[in-house]
Design a protein around this nucleic acid. Structure first.
Lengths: 261, 261
DNA sequence: CGGATTGTTGATAAAGTTCAAACACGGTGG
DNA sequence: CCACCGTGTTTGAACTTTATCAACAATCCG
């Protein structure tokens, strides 16, 4: 059941049959060490990698060595599915922790495109989910200041981990250094350090020893202007993501579109 | 010949036959006024819009009104093709100038997906080109400072306009206000003003009365750390984009992959 | 145990924002 | 034709945010 988390709880989901087709397309399983480059920019690709377990980053590096992370991938993400139409990536895929991938040959994806157009459309959707997250990262970097950026990123990761059962909305494992957070949020690690201290002191959130503790999710969401619409989540998981219990939640008016903001 | 610029000079291009198929999928042509919302976030879609003429933005706005542009679309861009797999957008599509769109119903795209999988893959590629540009925008905001951000953005627009014949590499029309540039580069319009003055004084680039003049493209590219790999351009247009004439250009070693960086 | 990585703090400098006020320019209406 | 208006540009001064440099503490790993 390697693919059990692919497109889980999204506005577009895979059927059981489609899940079986994707599973059948897996050629092998590969393990990578921490901080290992899985795909280098410019390298021609013939397979795409589905992340079964671990934490992985996608990074843009320019000639002068400045590095910016453009995505973080968690278990259940089809990390470089976009390598299938693109054939070559514009960025690097680098593990953060030891990671396990399921490898899908592009020939199998071509086969799916020909035989199962509806499934192909869902895989297309999956790659556009990444694009939607990129847009939110642009917003985060362009419009939020340091503290909100970090809080906003942690809200995103919490939501995505909740979907795959790796966060309960209160705490979760996140093996990122403050330097990593800087490369994600466009900050120096020193400033990240000061901001984390402030977030801790405000009783909003803390990250110690690879473990995030969210003191008050709703307060954190308000503080960071987080709106999960861009994750295209199934409305049923929305309340949990937003820290709304049966009592605490604002009533959501019926008939509202699935994506807000 | 409304679609004459779709996927022009990219590492993946449409054949004449494919171009004809896309052209046949156009249902109508729609004109919009400047600063008009074409698609609002959250609104269910049944058509996608190809930009024939004009300048269009895609914008993320949060509840508190902060607005960040996440993409600029020029003639030849399939602006919201991603609305086909997504069904609903997470952001707004807003014209900057008066614009003309060719409207393609999603039913026609479904038809293409079933009948022409190879063309479908190229359309998929087209949407991932946007994602690649998003990544570069993340890099720009996260790692460059104000002056380089603006210079970098102008290099991108110059390259994209050259591909569709709307820039000669020295000057082009770009009807953006300094406020718009601020919403693109994550800056206040006041700071944009000061940076533009500095770029002008350094003889790098100027923007006056909706007209960009590039004094020295190669210098501007160096200054902004611009690397066009993420645009997936056909190698044949690369020298022109980089301001390399027959004499001035560095020799590109043979056998290099099409995407650098 | 020892070396390397990661986290913490202080002092100082640079970058960018905010607020306020003028200025330029292309309409438009009298 | 000119006065007026709105939009966009320009400038100054004070302030906030973030980076840089330097040092040291804590922690992890072999």
């Amino acid at each position: 059941m390697l693919t059990r988390h692919l497109l889980l709880h999204r506005t577009v989901e895979l059927t059981h049959a489609e899940r079986a087709i994707v599973r059948a397309a897996i050629r092998e399983v590969r393990d990578y060490a921490p901080r290992e480059t899985v795909v280098a920019a410019g390298q021609p690709l013939s397979v795409s990698m589905f992340l079964v377990e671990g934490l992985v980053s996608r990074a843009v590096t320019d000639a002068s060595g400045a590095r910016q992370l453009v995505a973080i991938q968690v278990a259940g993400d089809f990390v470089d599915l976009h390598g299938y139409p693109l054939r070559v990536l514009d960025h690097d895929v680098v593990t953060i922790t030891a990671s396990r991938f399921a490898v899908v040959p592009h020939s199998a994806l071509t086969e799916i495109q020909h035989q199962h157009p509806e499934l192909a459309r869902k895989l297309w959707f999956n790659t556009l989910l990444d694009a939607s997250m990129h847009r939110t990262w642009v917003f985060r970097l362009g419009r939020l200041k340091a503290a909100s950026r970090i809080a906003h990123f942690l809200c995103e990761i919490n939501a995505r981990l909740m979907v795959v059962g790796l966060s309960d909305g209160k705490s979760f494992s996140l093996p990122l250094t403050q330097f990593d957070l800087g490369e994600i949020c466009g900050l120096t690690s020193i400033h990240v350090n000061r901001v984390m201290k402030s977030l801790r002191e405000q009783q909003l959130v803390s990250l110690r020893k690879s473990h995030v503790v969210i003191n008050d999710l709703r307060k954190l969401i308000r503080f960071s202007h987080f709106d999960p619409g861009y994750l295209y989540l199934n409305p049923s998981v929305h309340p949990a993501i937003m820290g709304e219990t049966a009592q605490s939640g604002h009533q959501r008016p019926p008939g509202q579109p699935p994506v807000s903001g």
